[in-house]
Protein backbone atom coordinates (compact mmCIF):
# COMPACT_ATOMS: atom_id res chain seq x y z
CA UNK A 1 0.00 0.00 0.00
CA UNK A 2 2.81 2.34 0.86
CA UNK A 3 4.19 1.29 -2.46
CA UNK A 4 1.13 2.74 -4.13
CA UNK A 5 1.64 6.13 -2.53
CA UNK A 6 5.25 6.10 -3.54
CA UNK A 7 4.41 5.13 -7.06
CA UNK A 8 1.90 7.94 -7.28
CA UNK A 9 4.48 10.39 -6.11
CA UNK A 10 7.10 8.95 -8.41
CA UNK A 11 4.72 9.39 -11.31
CA UNK A 12 3.98 12.96 -10.37
CA UNK A 13 7.61 13.80 -10.02
CA UNK A 14 8.54 12.07 -13.20
CA UNK A 15 6.14 14.21 -15.16
CA UNK A 16 7.12 17.36 -13.42
CA UNK A 17 10.59 16.81 -12.35
CA UNK A 18 12.66 18.67 -14.84
CA UNK A 19 13.87 22.15 -15.36
CA UNK A 20 15.68 24.24 -17.91
CA UNK A 21 19.30 24.84 -17.09
CA UNK A 22 22.56 24.25 -18.79
CA UNK A 23 24.21 21.30 -17.10
CA UNK A 24 27.86 21.55 -17.99
CA UNK A 25 29.86 20.55 -14.96
CA UNK A 26 26.79 20.01 -12.83
CA UNK A 27 27.02 16.99 -10.52
CA UNK A 28 24.09 14.55 -10.56
CA UNK A 29 23.18 15.62 -7.03
CA UNK A 30 23.12 19.27 -8.07
CA UNK A 31 20.98 18.36 -11.06
CA UNK A 32 18.40 16.70 -8.82
CA UNK A 33 18.53 19.39 -6.15
CA UNK A 34 18.02 22.16 -8.64
CA UNK A 35 15.37 20.28 -10.54
CA UNK A 36 13.31 19.39 -7.51
CA UNK A 37 13.63 22.91 -6.12
CA UNK A 38 12.40 24.42 -9.37
CA UNK A 39 9.53 21.98 -9.62
CA UNK A 40 8.42 22.74 -6.11
CA UNK A 41 8.66 26.45 -6.85
CA UNK A 42 6.18 26.01 -9.71
CA UNK A 43 3.91 23.69 -7.72
CA UNK A 44 3.81 26.00 -4.73
CA UNK A 45 3.27 29.20 -6.74
CA UNK A 46 -0.25 30.29 -5.88
CA UNK A 47 -0.31 32.88 -8.67
CA UNK A 48 -0.20 30.28 -11.42
CA UNK A 49 -3.30 28.47 -12.63
CA UNK A 50 -3.42 24.77 -13.43
CA UNK A 51 -2.75 25.12 -17.15
CA UNK A 52 0.22 27.44 -16.71
CA UNK A 53 1.72 25.09 -14.16
CA UNK A 54 1.16 22.10 -16.42
CA UNK A 55 2.77 23.69 -19.44
CA UNK A 56 5.74 24.96 -17.47
CA UNK A 57 6.34 21.55 -15.95
CA UNK A 58 5.93 19.88 -19.32
CA UNK A 59 8.57 22.05 -20.91
CA UNK A 60 10.88 21.30 -17.98
CA UNK A 61 10.23 17.63 -18.60
CA UNK A 62 11.09 17.94 -22.26
CA UNK A 63 14.34 19.70 -21.55
CA UNK A 64 15.68 17.61 -18.72
CA UNK A 65 14.56 14.11 -19.37
CA UNK A 66 15.41 11.94 -22.33
CA UNK A 67 12.18 10.83 -23.89
CA UNK A 68 13.84 8.85 -26.65
CA UNK A 69 15.59 6.72 -24.05
CA UNK A 70 12.51 6.44 -21.86
CA UNK A 71 10.52 5.25 -24.88
CA UNK A 72 13.06 2.50 -25.52
CA UNK A 73 13.26 1.50 -21.88
CA UNK A 74 9.53 1.17 -21.30
CA UNK A 75 9.19 -0.99 -24.40
CA UNK A 76 12.26 -3.12 -23.72
CA UNK A 77 12.67 -5.95 -26.19
CA UNK A 78 9.32 -5.06 -27.75
CA UNK A 79 10.79 -1.87 -29.18
CA UNK A 80 11.88 -3.75 -32.29
CA UNK A 81 8.31 -4.86 -32.98
CA UNK A 82 7.33 -1.24 -33.55
CA UNK A 83 7.58 0.28 -37.00
CA UNK A 84 9.14 3.74 -37.31
CA UNK A 85 5.75 5.42 -37.48
CA UNK A 86 4.48 3.39 -34.53
CA UNK A 87 7.53 4.44 -32.53
CA UNK A 88 6.84 8.09 -33.23
CA UNK A 89 3.17 7.69 -32.39
CA UNK A 90 3.99 5.74 -29.24
CA UNK A 91 6.33 8.43 -27.96
CA UNK A 92 3.64 11.05 -28.54
CA UNK A 93 0.86 9.15 -26.75
CA UNK A 94 3.15 8.08 -23.91
CA UNK A 95 4.10 11.67 -23.21
CA UNK A 96 0.46 12.68 -23.30
CA UNK A 97 -0.49 9.77 -21.04
CA UNK A 98 2.04 10.80 -18.40
CA UNK A 99 1.02 14.40 -18.65
CA UNK A 100 -2.72 13.77 -18.53
CA UNK A 101 -2.78 11.14 -15.80
CA UNK A 102 -0.22 12.60 -13.48
CA UNK A 103 -0.82 16.23 -14.29
CA UNK A 104 -3.95 15.94 -12.18
CA UNK A 105 -1.74 15.67 -9.15
CA UNK A 106 -0.36 19.14 -9.69
CA UNK A 107 -3.16 20.82 -7.79
CA UNK A 108 -2.87 18.40 -4.91
CA UNK A 109 0.58 19.60 -3.99
CA UNK A 110 0.98 20.25 -0.29
CA UNK A 111 4.05 21.34 1.53
CA UNK A 112 6.76 18.81 0.77
CA UNK A 113 10.51 18.92 0.90
CA UNK A 114 12.97 16.81 -1.00
CA UNK A 115 16.33 16.06 0.56
CA UNK A 116 19.17 14.49 -1.36
CA UNK A 117 20.46 11.66 0.84
CA UNK A 118 23.09 10.08 -1.38
CA UNK A 119 24.05 8.80 -4.77
CA UNK A 120 25.83 5.96 -6.46
CA UNK A 121 27.42 5.38 -9.84
CA UNK A 122 25.66 2.73 -11.91
CA UNK A 123 26.77 0.60 -14.83
CA UNK A 124 28.05 2.35 -17.98
CA UNK A 125 28.17 5.85 -16.60
CA UNK A 126 24.61 6.11 -15.30
CA UNK A 127 24.08 7.59 -11.88
CA UNK A 128 21.38 7.22 -9.25
CA UNK A 129 20.61 10.09 -6.88
CA UNK A 130 18.77 9.06 -3.74
CA UNK A 131 16.36 11.44 -2.10
CA UNK A 132 13.88 11.48 0.69
CA UNK A 133 10.51 13.10 0.28
CA UNK A 134 9.54 14.63 3.59
CA UNK A 135 5.81 15.09 3.99
CA UNK A 136 3.88 16.95 6.65
CA UNK A 137 1.77 13.90 7.39
CA UNK A 138 2.83 10.33 6.89
CA UNK A 139 6.23 8.72 6.75
CA UNK A 140 9.09 9.96 4.59
CA UNK A 141 9.27 8.32 1.21
CA UNK A 142 12.35 7.27 -0.63
CA UNK A 143 12.55 8.53 -4.21
CA UNK A 144 15.54 7.75 -6.41
CA UNK A 145 16.37 9.34 -9.75
CA UNK A 146 18.23 7.47 -12.45
CA UNK A 147 20.28 9.80 -14.64
CA UNK A 148 22.22 9.29 -17.83
CA UNK A 149 24.73 11.50 -19.61
CA UNK A 150 23.56 12.93 -22.87
CA UNK A 151 25.57 15.40 -24.90
CA UNK A 152 27.61 16.37 -21.89
CA UNK A 153 24.84 16.84 -19.39
CA UNK A 154 22.59 14.80 -17.18
CA UNK A 155 19.12 13.74 -18.17
CA UNK A 156 16.47 11.92 -16.18
CA UNK A 157 15.57 8.43 -17.41
CA UNK A 158 13.67 6.89 -14.49
CA UNK A 159 12.11 7.66 -11.12
CA UNK A 160 12.06 4.99 -8.44
CA UNK A 161 9.59 5.57 -5.61
CA UNK A 162 9.95 3.31 -2.57
CA UNK A 163 11.94 0.90 -4.68
CA UNK A 164 9.40 0.80 -7.50
CA UNK A 165 10.77 1.88 -10.83
CA UNK A 166 8.33 3.79 -13.00
CA UNK A 167 10.00 2.50 -16.14
CA UNK A 168 9.85 -1.12 -14.97
CA UNK A 169 6.23 -0.76 -13.88
CA UNK A 170 5.18 0.69 -17.21
CA UNK A 171 7.18 -1.95 -19.07
CA UNK A 172 5.40 -4.70 -17.21
CA UNK A 173 1.98 -3.30 -18.11
CA UNK A 174 2.95 -2.61 -21.72
CA UNK A 175 4.39 -6.10 -22.05
CA UNK A 176 1.08 -7.57 -20.98
CA UNK A 177 -0.85 -5.52 -23.55
CA UNK A 178 1.63 -6.13 -26.39
CA UNK A 179 1.61 -9.87 -25.74
CA UNK A 180 -2.13 -10.01 -26.18
CA UNK A 181 -2.63 -7.45 -28.94
CA UNK A 182 0.65 -6.22 -30.38
CA UNK A 183 1.86 -2.62 -30.75
CA UNK A 184 -1.42 -1.41 -32.26
CA UNK A 185 -3.38 -2.55 -29.24
CA UNK A 186 -1.01 -0.68 -26.91
CA UNK A 187 -1.36 2.50 -28.95
CA UNK A 188 -5.12 2.11 -28.90
CA UNK A 189 -5.25 1.57 -25.12
CA UNK A 190 -3.09 4.63 -24.53
CA UNK A 191 -5.17 6.79 -26.87
CA UNK A 192 -8.37 5.71 -25.14
CA UNK A 193 -6.88 6.46 -21.77
CA UNK A 194 -5.79 9.90 -22.89
CA UNK A 195 -9.15 10.59 -24.49
CA UNK A 196 -11.06 9.98 -21.28
CA UNK A 197 -8.87 12.41 -19.41
CA UNK A 198 -6.42 9.97 -17.91
CA UNK A 199 -8.99 7.42 -16.97
CA UNK A 200 -11.32 8.35 -14.22
CA UNK A 201 -12.32 5.05 -12.75
CA UNK A 202 -15.00 3.43 -14.85
CA UNK A 203 -17.90 2.34 -12.63
CA UNK A 204 -17.98 -1.40 -12.29
CA UNK A 205 -21.56 -1.65 -13.51
CA UNK A 206 -20.59 -0.09 -16.82
CA UNK A 207 -18.01 -2.73 -17.61
Amino acid sequence: MKALIALTIAFVLSTTNTVAASAGSETPEQFVEKTTADVIAVLADKNLDHNTKTSRLESMLDQRSDFDTITKLVLGANYRQFSESQKGEFQKVLREYLSVTYGKQIDLYVDQRILVTGGRPEARGDYTVQTKLVRKTGADLSVDYRLRQKEGHWVLIDVIGEGISLVANLRSQFQEIITHGGPDRLLQVLREKNANGGGDPVPVAAR
Partner: peptide, 14 residues
Amino acid sequence: RARSLDYYAFVRDA
Protein backbone atom coordinates in the same frame (compact mmCIF):
# COMPACT_ATOMS: atom_id res chain seq x y z
CA ARG B 1 -6.94 1.92 -10.63
CA ALA B 2 -7.71 4.95 -12.74
CA ARG B 3 -4.36 5.48 -14.34
CA SER B 4 -3.09 1.97 -14.86
CA LEU B 5 -3.49 0.47 -18.31
CA ASP B 6 -3.54 -3.07 -16.99
CA TYR B 7 -4.37 -2.88 -13.29
CA TYR B 8 -3.46 -6.51 -12.70
CA ALA B 9 0.01 -6.07 -14.24
CA PHE B 10 0.43 -2.76 -12.41
CA VAL B 11 -0.23 -4.34 -9.01
CA ARG B 12 1.87 -7.41 -9.77
CA ASP B 13 4.86 -5.37 -10.83
CA ALA B 14 4.55 -2.85 -8.01
